[in-house]
């Protein structure tokens, strides 16, 4: 079982997303995270999802995704060198001596404090999912009030592209 990042281009049509998601529940596959938005070409959407599975299962998933009429092209980014990023917005309790400690932690993780009140910092961090997880450990779960993660986006390194 490995984490996989599957990225695909599909028609930006109503119903397309529900077909992708439906496929996962219908066939008993799991989606860990999912992001989707139109591309520079408004008729296309780029969808990235992460899932866990054996090689056999991932092969089945990619075949079934490819079979969907709306799906144009697909890549398993984890098969090659790639870059993955996730954006996280997190509210933490920050008062007294904690404020400096958290600030330092945010700097180490190259995050930004994007909103401040007397007792709360709102922080933005980007990076791999592992890095975001590591941030939780560093600030301590007790301090965390609210977390919003975007889900993973990814792109292949170098010349390789997923385009029409």
């Amino acid at each position: 079982m490995k984490k996989r990042i599957i990225s695909l281009l599909m028609e930006n049509e109503p119903g397309a997303l529900s077909r992708v998601i439906g496929l996962f529940s219908q066939r008993g596959y799991n989606i860990e995270s999912l992001t989707v938005a139109p591309t520079e070409n408004a008729s296309l959407s780029r969808l990235t999802l992460t899932t866990m599975g054996s090689d056999h299962k991932i092969e089945q998933i990619t075949k079934h995704l490819n079979r969907l009429v709306d799906v144009i092209k697909l890549v398993d980014l984890t098969e090659g060198a790639h870059i993955e990023r996730e954006l996280m917005l997190v509210k933490v309790r920050a008062s007294g001596a904690q404020r400096a400690e958290i600030k330092r932690c945010v700097d180490i993780f190259r995050g930004q404090i994007i909103d401040v009140t007397a007792s709360v910092y709102t922080i933005q961090i980007t990076g791999t999912s592992d890095k975001l997880d590591a941030f939780f450990h560093s600030v301590g779960e007790a301090a965390i009030i609210e977390v919003v993660r975007s889900g993973v986006s990814g792109i292949a390194r170098g010349e390789k592209v997923l385009s029409l």
Binding site: H56, E59, Q60, K63, H64, N66, R67
Partner: peptide, 8 residues
């Protein structure tokens, strides 16, 4: 004709 039927 259907790749998803092969090696399922």
């Amino acid at each position: 004709i259907d790749p998803a039927s092969i090696s399922k």
